[in-house]
Design a protein around this nucleic acid. Structure first.
Length: 217
DNA sequence: GACCAGGCACATC
DNA sequence: GATGTGCATGGT
């Protein structure tokens, strides 16, 4: 029922912000690492960690697998939660090495539904991280829901604030055909809108979406 | 100093 | 099944 709303919002955001050129990362492996590191963390902090990993040429599955926990944690320290995230990267590496010989290219050949299920079984990979990997690292037509998506859609009365991840995702999947490029751009635009206008508080009175549903402080 | 950032797992009731 | 808490850095 909100299909038109989602299409209209996309049009507004795309006109205002233009193409976002996501994901900021060069290889499927780098994008996957970024997806884990950015959990509840500002992207600028993740960039510092990525830079450290590149500096020691550890931004590939083989090299990163050889690092000790302490080494890996030290390199990703700027991204915060470094002990937790070092463990999560290790869990993903174990999965990648065991199931796909350390090859993102092999992983990409697997069906999205099967792969999503596998990724969710990896410790430290939840719905958003799994879907970010599927969409941005592996070009699968899966929409990514994040805190900004929930905040923006609920504030504009399109979804209940307490709806779960799958309900939000279903709304996007129902509103558009499986369009990887559109899903890529739309999620990036939502993050852009969120960063610029949709903080937890105060409510934003100059939101670009006010033509849909004005919000007042 | 308080608040926020592109979550997730686990404990406890 | 719902609700609470730990994890941590760096920018505003």
């Amino acid at each position: 029922m909100h299909k038109k709303s989602l299409k209209k919002i996309y049009a507004i955001l795309h006109k205002k912000f233009g193409p976002q050129h996501w994901w900021p990362g060069d290889t499927p492996f780098e994008i996957t690492v970024g997806a884990i590191l950015t959990q509840n963390t500002n992207w600028s902090n993740v960039e510092k960690a990525i830079f450290n990993l590149k500096k020691v040429k550890a931004l590939n599955a083989a090299a990163m697998s050889r690092l000790a926990h302490e080494q890996l944690a030290a390199l990703i320290r700027p991204a915060g939660y470094f002990n937790v995230k070092a463990k999560r990267l290790r869990s993903f590496l174990d999965f990648l090495n065991d199931e796909y010989s350390g090859s993102m290219t092999k992983m990409k050949k697997i069906d999205a539904v099967v792969l999503r299920y596998q990724l969710l079984s990896v410790n430290g990979i939840g719905p958003e991280t799994a879907d970010s990997i599927l969409l941005y690292a592996l070009d699968k037509p899966v929409f990514v829901i994040d805190a900004y998506t929930k905040r923006i859609l609920s504030r504009h009365g399109i979804m209940e604030a307490d709806a779960d991840y799958h309900q939000y995702q279903q709304l996007f999947h129902d509103s558009f055909d499986n369009d990887t490029a559109l899903f890529n751009e739309y999620h990036a635009l939502i993050v852009r809108l969120g960063k610029d206008f949709c903080k937890p508080r105060p409510l934003c009175s100059s939101c670009p979406l006010n033509s849909i549903s004005p919000l007042y402080v």
